[in-house]
């Protein structure tokens, strides 16, 4: 899977799981997710579960940081690291 495909899958997962009224195609890789989509702790939990299920990865407790969830770029980088 290419880097762009991974990012697109992450965007689609976020829109679907958070019931967002947004077009995944229009989401920028580097836009601030928390500010632009009013993501709160409930949403973040959904994103974590979605990433784990979709990409077969597992978050460790010490992985959690606001920076990780800041953008699609940072999420994609994390997924890549966990899968490698």
């Amino acid at each position: 899977m290419s880097d762009q495909q991974l990012k697109q899958q992450i965007k689609e997962m976020i829109v679907e799981r958070l019931f967002l009224d947004a077009d995944p195609q229009q989401m920028a890789d580097d836009e601030n997710l928390m500010e632009n989509y009013e993501i709160d702790s409930v949403n973040l939990f959904e994103i974590v579960v979605g990433l784990e299920e979709q990409f077969d990865i597992s978050f460790e407790d010490e992985d959690f940081s606001v920076d990780l969830f800041a953008t699609v770029n940072s999420l994609a980088e994390y997924v890549e690291t966990k899968r490698s």
Binding site: D40, S41, L44, F45, V48, V49, F59, D61, E62, F64, S65, V66, D67
Partner: peptide
């Protein structure tokens, strides 16, 4: 485990809003 996750995420967000680093959330 999921409930602990929720607590970690809440602590992370609270720490972030309060200007903390968020690294001690867990």
């Amino acid at each position: 485990k999921q409930n602990l996750r929720r607590s970690i995420i809440k602590a992370m967000m609270t720490s972030h809003e309060g200007g903390g680093s968020g690294t001690t959330a867990a």
